[in-house]
Design a protein around this nucleic acid. Structure first.
Lengths: 225, 225
DNA sequence: TCAGGTACGTTAGGTCGCTCACACACGGGT
DNA sequence: ACCCGTGTGTGAGCGACCTAACGTACCTGA
């Protein structure tokens, strides 16, 4: 397993090599292809996961089948930890957005790590606090901004996390379909498509297959407020 | 200071009497009257707070002045902890919804408590995980449900946390104005008013001054899905 | 006790974004 | 090479909710 990503993860930064070595013994590797689901909403859960490569979408399904995405998680990030501290069934489902490799860690093993090095729980607190902050932000956006604004914001967020400099802008290989992007910003696919078309029209972005190139970061930021 | 509420708080359940005694030495009492603000969005923050009595609304303000409430916190609950683990300015403002008494605890002192008894950080993790779960829930509701549905859900949530049995139903003395209730569910005051009027019409609730009596819990639950 | 602020109730009109509907473009499998 | 499924682009129509604008009922303090 490629443990480089994990070694660099802030969560384990405080571990010495020996403790880290012991940890890696406990990890289970999981590989997912696009569209396959790791767990469903309501499942019991006793593991948390690290993303080694690829992307995972965390989402909820309404009784009528509509979906809403809570977050897109990428390499180096972790998820599925909530079921551990607050022992309840999974509150979201987790599905691969692209070819994805994960490292799973059982609750009991995490506990062992925490006992050895309390810094880890400080890191976990920080990770959770950050997530809560982001979610509160999204909540406010949903109330304050219109769909184009939310789309702009989502693109900027994805750019921040997955963007790479390209010749004429920032390449954001988000791997999401417009349908998924729509579920992420809480809007219909059609409306999101129109918002994207408008941005293209204005020369702010360029569309590629499951990717976007941001050409005018400033204007996009302006629109996202 | 009335420390009964604190002694019963799960966060401190694991402390022995001596440790708890030491902790109370570090607490600062704060009293707020309705409408006065403890901190604003963007302020630096080095304290977390326990609610001894009363209620606090946590909210965000849009550039144009509109407000959105992230949560209503009541007796026994804590808030303002995010700024500690994830050292950034306050992400929300905190304002008293009613006459409120708080106990403030500085970051450094919390650290001391955690060092002595690591169970406290487990409790903190649980509290954060629960909050994150709730916020994700709200996020999904905002997308899936219409305004009446969200109002119903908010009433049920408030009933769960602040409700008391009354002769003909559950008395929920939420202390919120309809404007605040509207900000909590992400809608306009007018629309919330209409939803409430409709519920009254149907005999599901009865309105009182800054309070609601839930008469037909079943129907209200039905409507909230 | 009166004045003025604050909260509540209700209406009318406009609009953003949803649903529905369809056409096209692409890509992978037989 | 050809489907056929999946994803993308676009238009028409409609409806939930917002804004704007009032009148009324309180409560509070001078």
């Amino acid at each position: 397993m490629d443990i480089d990503v994990l070694r660099r993860a802030p969560l384990f930064a405080s571990l010495d090599d020996q403790a880290f070595g012991a940890l890696t013994e406990e990890l289970t590797e999981v590989d997912l292809s696009r569209g396959s689901t790791l767990f469903h909403e309501g499942d019991p859960g006793d593991q948390l996961y690290f993303i080694i490569s690829g992307k995972i979408k965390l989402g909820r399904t309404a009784p009528d089948g509509r979906e809403s995405l809570v977050a897109i998680m990428g390499p180096g990030e972790l998820f599925g930890e909530m079921a551990l501290f607050d022992p309840s069934p999974r509150s979201t489902s987790a599905t691969a957005v692209s070819e994805t490799r994960l490292a799973g860690l059982k609750h009991e093993n995490l506990k062992k790590v925490i006992e050895r090095s309390p810094d880890v729980s400080a890191q976990l607190l920080q990770a959770l606090a950050r997530r809560l902050r982001r979610t509160n932000e999204s909540l406010a956006d949903l109330v304050f901004s219109d769909v184009p604004g939310r789309v702009a914001k989502a693109l900027l967020d994805l750019a921040d996390r997955f963007g790479r400099p390209a010749t004429d802008g920032i390449l954001v290989a988000h791997e999401l379909t417009q349908e998924e992007l729509a579920q992420l910003v809480g809007a219909s696919r059609e409306t999101v498509n129109k918002a994207l078309a408008e941005f293209v029209q204005r020369g702010w972005i360029r569309l590629e297959a499951r990717a976007v190139v941001i050409l005018d970061l400033q204007r996009l930021k302006q629109r996202s407020r």
